[in-house]
Nucleic acid binder design. Structure first.
Length: 270
DNA sequence: CTGAGATCCTGGGGGC
DNA sequence: TGCCCCCAGGATCTCA
C-alpha cells in the first residue's frame, strides 16, 4: 500500500523522469479511474499540457502542469505510477496512459482499480480536510499532544486518520508504535506525555528511514522506474506474525483494530 | 463528534 | 495436488 514514503519516492522519480515533457494524448481505458472531469473531457483537457513539477501531499502524488492545473493521483492499495520508455510494453493493468510527445508514457496501473486521478483547476481546493504533514514544522509535540488528548479512540486509529495526520498508513502506524513501545489498542488519552513524545519522534524517524530506503515493497509497490523499495527488509512488526521481536524475542502477534490487521509485540508494547 | 459498517475489486491464501 | 471460496485494505459515505 503506497503510504507517505512510497508516494514520496514515486514523486521524486517522476520529477526526474517527466518534468518538462509535453502530453500528446491520454488513453483512459477505465473511465471511473479518471474521477474529474468526468468523461472524455479528462483526456481532452490534458492534451498539450506540459509537466511543470511533481510533489507529494499525504498519500497523493500531485503532478503540476504549466497551466497551473494539477493532476492529483490517489494510488489507494495497488495503484502504480510507472514510466515506460518507447517500445516497452504497457505495465500490467494500465488503466490510464499519458503519452508524451517524446514517445515515453506515464502509466497509471491498478489491478484492483481503486486508484483515482483528478484534474484540479488553479485555485481549486482539493485537499480540504487533509491533515498536517509529518515532516512539516506544524507537526509539533504540542500539536500531537492536544490531538491525542481526551480521546478514547485507539491510538493506532488516530494515526491512520488522514484528516489529522496525512500520509501514515497501516505499515508505518504499526512500525512507529513498536518503535515507541506503545500498544496499538491503547486509548489515546491513556498515553503518558513521555509516551506521546516517544511516538512523535518514532513517526518522524520511521517515515524518514523508509523514505531513505525508497519505501516498502510487499505485494505491489514499485517506484516510478518499476523498482522495489528496501524497507520491507527492516520491518520490525508489520507482517511478522509468529516471528521473534527484534527487541525482546517475544513472538509478534496479529490482531484487528478498526477492521485493520495490526502487528505488535505483547511484551515491549504497553 | 465518534464509531461501526458497507462499498469497491481481485490475487492469493486457506481450507477441504 | 487441485479447486473453490473468502477476504484484506484506503478512502468515502451512510447511519446510529
Amino acid at each position: 500500500m503506497p503510504e507517505l514514503p512510497e508516494v514520496e519516492t514515486i514523486a521524486r522519480g517522476l520529477t526526474k523522469a517527466i518534468v518538462g515533457k509535453t502530453i500528446e494524448r491520454v488513453d483512459v481505458r477505465l473511465a471511473k479511474m479518471a474521477l474529474a472531469p468526468a468523461g472524455v473531457s479528462f483526456a481532452h483537457a490534458l492534451a498539450g499540457e506540459r509537466i511543470a513539477g511533481v510533489m507529494r501531499r499525504g498519500k497523493y502524488a500531485v503532478i503540476g502542469l504549466r497551466s497551473g492545473r494539477r493532476l492529483v493521483t490517489s494510488l489507494r492499495m495497488t495503484g502504480r505510477l510507472v514510466v515506460q520508455r518507447p517500445g516497452e510494453p504497457d505495465f500490467p493493468a494500465t488503466h490510464i496512459a499519458l503519452q508524451f510527445t517524446d514517445r515515453t508514457r506515464l502509466n497509471f496501473a491498478d489491478v484492483r482499480t481503486f486508484g483515482r486521478m483528478r484534474l484540479v483547476e488553479p485555485g481549486e481546493e482539493w485537499e480540504l480536510g487533509l491533515g498536517i504533514e509529518p515532516f512539516s514544522s506544524d507537526f509539533t509535540q504540542e500539536w500531537f499532544l492536544s490531538m491525542l488528548s481526551g480521546r478514547t479512540t485507539p491510538v493506532k486509529a488516530l494515526l491512520l486518520d488522514q484528516r489529522r495526520i496525512a500520509g501514515i498508513g497501516n505499515i508505518y502506524a504499526c512500525e512507529a508504535l513498536w518503535e515507541a513501545g506503545i500498544r496499538p489498542s491503547r486509548p489515546a488519552k491513556a498515553l503518558t506525555k513521555a509516551a506521546i513524545h516517544r511516538l512523535h519522534h518514532a513517526i518522524i524517524d520511521v517515515l524518514q528511514r523508509a523514505v531513505d530506503l525508497r519505501g516498502t515493497s510487499i505485494d505491489d509497490y514499485v517506484d516510478a522506474d518499476g523498482l522495489q523499495g528496501g524497507f520491507q527488509n527492516v520491518l520490525a512488526v508489520y507482517g511478522r506474525a509468529g516471528d521473534a521481536c527484534h527487541r525482546c524475542g517475544t513472538l509478534i502477534v496479529r490482531t484487528v483494530i478498526g477492521a485493520r490487521g495490526t502487528w505488535w509485540c505483547r511484551t515491549c508494547q504497553r
